[in-house]
Design a protein around this nucleic acid. Structure first.
Length: 538
RNA sequence: GGCGGCGUAGCUCAGCUGGUCAGAGCGGGGAUCUCAUAAGUCCCAGGUCGGAGGUUCGAGUCCUCCCGCCGCCA
């Protein structure tokens, strides 16, 4: 009964929505490819899946940036939002919803959530004073503020230690959310769901935050200062704080407030999210504020929050001032979309920052994609070894050699290994298992020396057994790499004449290729390299 | 300062509940096949598993302390 409902509910995964005050960098792409990989994995397993991404467009920074650029806010948003969309299109991110916080439907959702919190008494009007930084759009506790003296004028001023931006003592009236009332509930949630936040270290980190207690959260700004935002319902003199606004996007995507939906329709709207991908820098918003808002509205928190680490370059944090920001458009143009997707999933850090380098991308391409996968495809579909382009039949037990056993065992185990890895959001484990099997397939091929077998007609049976195992290894790895490299794997499976309806997860088992009409099928022999050499310059 | 984590071959890292756990990949060195994208395959690393104690028949694997990193919080 419960699993029936579970099965009906689509898998819902989100990326953060990206703030339009900056251009896309490799970290944004990393979030998106993670989400896309897991979404495609679920679809491969036959579950309907929703993937949402989009842009966060309100707030003072946008208001200011637009002013400086001489644009209307929405014009600036349109432009940058499109830029992000272009990136995700170029990266083959199969989002089902591209949400923008300036859309009317989003305002509806945000106002509804506000009303829900208000009706339940979790919002109150309070006086807020403290050190406020206009450019950071944030208040800082006095412990995080330092006094400085202007050397020329002798005037004293204050800055936020963390960002170095100037702060001023400010008093204003704010609406506040009773976050403090949720400390216990959040703690309970995390205690009962030890994998609610991945990786484990982040889970512990959030538990640590809760241990020291939570203060109420200011969730509005006076309109006198911030106009570019969603007005507080019933009080036009206040505009909602950007995070309150932004986080709600995950509900907007599901059609919240679900007013006109039947019970059945509501059950399949997607909420609660199965996975929410975030960068580690925005964990607090997603793992504390967001679940608290949801609990306050009596909605379920997301099932899993995955906080990934960042990319560094030469071990240094990427930043504009150092000029070491990796442009994802350039990278994909240079190496190919699927190469970058593979690199991000194979080398990207979940717990720890990973170092990005073109040399490493090149190395992965040469050794793994071209050297192992591409090359094995070429050698097993060569004109010399299989001029007929026929697909050998799956070998009878009697024809299986002792030399085939190790490869067969690895192929047999691979599906569950990869399934377990991707289900646990560990992409590196998945790619490593696949390429470990491929390496074995290359070794098996070399050891069997099919180029000798082909010269001896009496060895035809053995040749077929060797070729079959090799083609099968490629089929399995391409099939399971589909979530990570959708385009290239599609080409490979095409070349092997695997039908579209034979590419789902259930076919990722040894012997489940070419099950019907095998004799009619043909592999493409002597085709061009699947992963041709990169331009010699790098 | 408090809490948490980490420190394993040149590099990046696997090593769950203690007993083939001293490993993989890359880089480097050597050899080799020729089906293939000069790709592939095979062999080679003798690293005190940060240091010192302790528990145990037995410890990268548990405990204590020290050193060095990193994260979060203050």
């Amino acid at each position: 009964m419960s699993w029936i409902l579970e099965a009906q509910k689509p898998y819902y995964i989100t990326t953060p929505i990206f703030y339009v005050n900056a251009v896309p960098h490799i970290g944004h792409l990393h979030s998106a490819v993670l989400a896309d990989t897991f979404k495609r994995f679920q679809e491969l397993k036959g579950r309907r899946a929703i993937l949402s991404t989009g842009t966060d467009e309100h707030g003072l920074k946008i208001q200011q940036a637009a002013q400086q650029a001489g644009l209307k806010e929405i014009e600036l948003c349109d432009k940058v939002s499109q830029h992000f969309k272009d990136l995700f299109d170029a990266a083959n991110i199969s989002y089902t919803t591209y949400i923008r916080t300036t859309e009317p439907r989003h305002a509806v959702a945000v106002r509804e959530l506000w009303d829900q919190l208000w009706a339940r008494g979790y919002i109150y009007k309070g006086q807020h004073e403290g050190w406020y930084s206009v450019s950071d759009e944030a208040y800082y506790p006095s412990t995080q503020v330092e006094e400085k003296t202007n050397e020329k004028t002798g005037e004293k001023y204050h800055i936020a230690t963390e960002t170095g931006k100037q702060v001023e003592w400010t008093t204003e009236e704010n609406y506040k959310f009773k976050l403090s009332a949720f400390t216990d509930k959040l703690t309970e949630w995390l205690d009962q769901n030890p994998e609610a936040i991945l990786p484990k270290g982040r889970h512990q980190e959030v538990q640590g935050w809760l241990k020291s207690g939570l203060a109420d959260l200011s969730i509005s700004r006076p309109k006198s200062r911030l106009t570019w935002g969603i007005p507080v319902p019933g009080d036009d003199s206040h505009v909602m704080y950007v995070w309150m606004d932004a986080l709600t996007n995950y509900l907007t995507v599901t059609g919240y407030p679900w007013k006109d939906l039947s019970k059945d329709e509501k059950a399949v709207c997607g909420w609660p999210a199965d996975a929410q991908i975030v960068g580690k820098d925005i964990l607090r918003f997603h793992a504390v504020y967001w679940p608290a808002f949801l609990m306050a509205a009596e909605l379920a928190p997301p099932k899993t929050i995955i906080a990934h680490a960042h990319w560094t370059q030469s071990k240094m944090k990427m930043s504009k001032s150092i000029g070491n920001v990796v442009d994802p458009f350039t990278a994909m143009k240079e190496f190919g979309t699927d190469t970058i997707r593979f690199y991000l999933m194979n080398d990207g850090g979940l717990a720890d920052d990973a170092d990005y380098s073109s040399e490493m991308v090149t190395a992965r391409y040469r050794k793994l994609l071209a050297g192992q996968l591409g090359n094995l495809l070429s050698r097993s579909t060569s004109v010399a070894l299989n001029p007929s382009s026929l697909i050998p039949s799956a070998p009878e037990t009697d024809n299986i050699h002792a030399d085939d056993m190790l490869l067969r065992e690895k192929m047999q185990r691979l599906q569950s290994t990869v399934d377990e890895a991707l289900s646990g959001y560990r992409t590196t484990q998945a790619t490593q298992a696949i390429f470990d099997m491929l390496a074995e397939a290359n070794a098996h091929f070399s050891f069997a020396e099919p180029w000798k077998l082909v010269k001896d007609p009496s060895k035809k049976d053995r040749l077929d057994v060797v070729l079959w195992h090799t083609l099968e290894a490629i089929r399995l790895s391409a099939l399971m790499l589909q979530p990570i490299m959708p385009s290239k794997t599609s080409e490979i499976l095409d070349q092997l004449d695997i039908r579209k309806d034979e590419r789902s997860w259930e076919f990722a088992q040894l012997g489940r290729g070419w099950e019907i009409e095998r004799e009619k099928r043909r592999v493409v022999i002597g085709g061009p390299p699947m992963f041709p050499p990169l331009n010699a310059t790098k």
